[in-house]
Simulated scan of single mutants.
Amino acid sequence: MKMQAERLTVIEPLPLPLHEKLFDDGEQLALALARQVAADLRAALARHGEASIALSGGNTPKRFFQLLSQQTLDWARVTVLPIDERWVPAEHPRSNERLLREHLFQNNAAVARFLPLYRPVDTPEMALMPVLTKIANEGLPLDVAVLGMGEDGHTASLFPDLGHDNPALREIGLQPRGRAPVMSVRTAAMPEPRMTLTLSAIFTAPALYLHIEGESKRAVLDAARSDPRSTLPIRAALAGASNAPTLYWSP
């Protein structure tokens, strides 16, 4: 009697949830994101009289910052935090504080309050406790957070080699419900040490956005979303969020 071979069904894992808003170019994206973030800030101001937003650095968000600065709302009651900061003085070309001051703190947004991560001391570790206390007491919870992503899959200053020498650091940075809102970071991928918000701080924002541009970054994001074995920080950010983030992407 011939035995019938069993047919195995392979179930592919579903990609992590992500709302998507796709645009033809970066200009359209920047305007749409600026209008949406402004609406979120107005809603937060109406709910509790003040608002807090954390923003990522890099070249990608410059146009978004400029358009956001033109939006009409009560900016004097808005607190702005960098999601992460390189440990360089505020006047340094690689400073995210400088980036925000040059591209966001102008027009209507010139009166917004800024809550820096950098302090004029030699290392981020030396400033960690004062910064942590300041952020916890005056910056959180967030109302809006706008993340970016590098081509290596890092987000904020949470890099793939996070915790290489100290595994506890990875747990602190990527823990979605952790107690540490900020942490110091040293990575082989970048020349200077950094300070960053952790995912637990970022996830206090009910409005969470991911702003990326370009086909290569989109490929990294899609691979991380689809592969449950991925250890990239961007996957942790998508997997740990209580509400699926909204992607703003253009080629």
Rank of each mutant, 00 (worst) to 15 (best):
V131P: 00
H211G: 06
K134T: 14
H211Y: 12
T246H: 07
F65E: 05
V131H: 01
P130D: 11
H154N: 05
F114P: 00
H19A: 15
G173Q: 04
Q106N: 15
D122R: 14
L147H: 06
R42C: 08
K2G: 07
H154V: 07
E102Y: 03
A145I: 02
P233H: 08
T79G: 09
T198W: 08
H164F: 13
L68P: 05
E213V: 12
Q66C: 08
V220F: 02
A127I: 09
P167G: 11
A34C: 01
N107I: 10
V80M: 01
E151Q: 09
P61A: 15
I234R: 08
E102D: 12
A168E: 13
G150F: 15
P176S: 14
R7M: 10
A168S: 12
R186W: 00
R235M: 09
G163Y: 05
R101F: 10
R229Q: 10
N137A: 14
L210Q: 03
E20G: 15
L199T: 03
P120W: 01
H103V: 11
F203P: 04
L238G: 08
D222Q: 12
A43V: 00
K2P: 12
F105K: 06
E85R: 00
A188K: 04
V121A: 02
A51K: 06
L68G: 07
L16K: 01
K21E: 15
T204E: 02
D40V: 01
D84Q: 00
F203T: 06
T246Q: 12
A224T: 04
T246C: 13
I212L: 13
A239K: 03
L169F: 13
M1W: 07
S250P: 02
S95H: 03
H103E: 11
L16D: 00
A244E: 02
W249D: 06
L158I: 14
V131E: 01
V220P: 10
S250E: 05
E50C: 11
P181W: 07
A241H: 07
V146Y: 11
Q175D: 14
L29M: 06
N137W: 01
R186A: 02
L115M: 14
R113Y: 07
Q4Y: 03
R119N: 06
V146H: 06
L81C: 01
H164Y: 07
L104Q: 08
G240A: 08
D227H: 06
P181G: 04
R170M: 05
V78S: 10
K2Q: 10
H103D: 11
N96R: 00
A54T: 03
M3D: 15
D74S: 11
A236I: 05
N108R: 12
A156N: 03
R42I: 04
D24A: 10
A30F: 05
K21A: 12
A180D: 13
Q36P: 07
L169V: 10
N59T: 13
A110M: 08
V182D: 04
S56H: 06
A76F: 04
R94V: 02
P17D: 03
A51H: 04
